[in-house]
């Protein structure tokens, strides 16, 4: 089932995952540092390796809009973007989650202009924090591959039916070549069943999607959406559990590193946590009781798991790759335990 380790760029590993998931439709607009993902997918479609509709669009707003359509007819749908591109598709993200369309998107996290920056930070991720998508952070190319595969399975589970965003740090993951173990097609086929939308857009059985919702309906709809997003955690746990049987790699909403007896903990999302592990190893070697908490599941927010992993630490140092202008201590927040949610 598990293939041998190969050297591959993070973006291409994600493209492999999308191909193995047998997506039916990809609609995307290129933007650094995400471009390699969709370029590779376009090649797969062009050379016949992937039997999917590749929709080149004129903007990210159109990309996500096209994804709404393909997902609504019952096609497994993928896209990827970053930074300004994500901002341009912003309003459509809410439509995707509210219409409960299980689109999977990779976000190659990148700073937002100005000044123009193509480099990594999490400001783009934070700008879409509340858009109703399930959001998961990967720390390396292997995780990116694994979590994108799992994302299709999670999104399309009937009890969930929500879009999933897998965050990968631009360049640190998207453009880094490193060892990755892919999976056999049969293994993936058994892991991700066929996507069936219960009420697809179908001329033979017409339905209406995205109708007008006066306040009494809108409020109920938002409640239903919030309940579904919170309840998705149970499914995420199940899917990751099943995936570990398939691949030997286990994922949790919050993962610790040397966290058990630590007095001081770092709290980090994304690829930077691997760099932090290097620092922690060095400090531990000097006898300092430091550890790391890695937030993998960002939405729904895993409050209980975070509390457990934090354990008895005295100090938590949050290394945040986003700035909340005018907010409270946004980038590096030193916080006592009681401030942690």
């Amino acid at each position: 089932m598990v293939k041998k380790m190969i050297g591959i760029e993070g973006s291409f590993a994600i493209a492999e995952a999308v191909k193995l998931a047998r997506v039916d439709a990809v609609a995307a607009y290129p933007i650094t540092p995400q471009t390699h993902i969709v370029e590779r997918l376009a090649e797969f479609v062009a050379n016949g390796e992937l039997d999917a509709e590749y929709i080149p669009v004129e903007s990210e707003h159109s990309a996500m809009s096209a994804c709404l359509g393909t997902s609504a007819v019952g096609a497994r749908t993928f896209t990827a973007t970053a930074s300004q591109g994500l901002e341009l598709m912003h309003e459509v993200l809410y439509v995707a989650s509210s219409m409960r369309l299980p689109i999977v998107m990779t976000l190659a996290n990148r700073a937002i202009s100005a000044p123009l920056s193509i480099w990594t930070d999490h400001c783009d991720a934070m700008a879409v924090r509340d858009c109703g998508w399930i959001q998961i952070f990967a720390e390396n190319a292997q995780q990116a591959f694994d979590l994108v595969l799992c994302a299709f399975r999670i999104a399309e589970t009937p009890a969930v039916f929500l879009p999933v965003m897998v965050h990968i740090d631009g360049f640190y993951i998207s453009h880094t070549i490193e060892p990755v173990q892919l999976l056999e097609q049969e293994a993936v086929d058994s892991f991700i069943p066929e996507y069936r939308h219960p009420y697809p857009l179908d001329p033979d059985r017409p339905v209406t999607m995205g109708a007008f919702g006066p306040p009494p309906i809108y409020t109920e709809a938002k409640k239903a959406q919030e309940v579904a997003l919170r309840a998705s955690k149970a499914v995420i746990l199940e899917v990751w559990q099943e995936f570990s049987l398939l691949s030997g790699r286990h994922y949790s909403p919050v993962e610790g590193y040397e966290a058990g007896d630590a007095d001081v903990l770092f709290l980090i999302m994304g690829s930077f946590s691997e760099t932090a592990m290097v620092a922690i190893d060095r400090m531990r070697a000097k006898g300092q009781k430091v550890g790391l908490v890695r937030l993998r599941l960002w939405r729904p927010f895993p409050v209980q798991e975070l509390r457990q992993t934090v354990g008895k630490a005295w100090v938590i140092i949050v290394l945040d790759r986003a700035i909340s202008f005018g907010g409270r201590d946004p980038s590096v927040l030193k916080s006592r335990r009681r401030f942690i949610p």
Binding site: S98, M99, R100, L101, F161, P198, Y199, R205, P206, V207, T208, M209, G210, A211, G213, P216, I217, E220, A221, K223, A224, V227, A228
Partner: peptide
């Protein structure tokens, strides 16, 4: 009006003439 438990996922309407 339907309650949140009664709405279909994404507020899909399956019958015309609502």
């Amino acid at each position: 009006l339907p309650t949140w438990q009664e709405l279909l996922p994404g507020c899909v309407l399956t019958k015309p003439g609502s």
